[in-house]
Amino acid sequence: MAAAPVTPPHKPRIKVRLWGSLRAATGGKEVVEVEAANFKDVIDALARDYPALRPQIARGVSLAIDGVIYKESWFTPINPDNEVVLMPLMVGG
C-alpha cells in the first residue's frame, strides 16, 4: 500500500520589507509577503517568488527580526507578529 502523501506544514504569511534598490526586483513593492516559519523559508520564498532577487541573495543577505540583525541563521523562527527586514550580509573591520 502506497504511503499517504505528506502534506507540508502550513506556514504563516510573513511581511518582509526590502531596501530601496531591491524594489525594482519586486515590481516596485517595498513590502512583500511570503509563506515562512524561519529565516531560510523567507530567503527561499523570496528567491522563488521574485527571481530578480536571486543575484542579491547569492551575494548574501541578513534579516533584521524585530530590530535584531541575524546574519545567516536559517532556523531562526519567524512569526507574523515579527517585523522582518531584509538586509545585506553584514561584515566589519
Binding site: 520589507r17 531596501w19 533584521a64 524585530d66 530590530g67 535584531v68 517585523e83 527586514v85 538586509m87
Partner: peptide, 9 residues
Amino acid sequence: KASYGPTYP
C-alpha cells in the same frame, strides 16, 4: 524606524 529599515529595540 531606522533609516536602513528595521525598528530599533
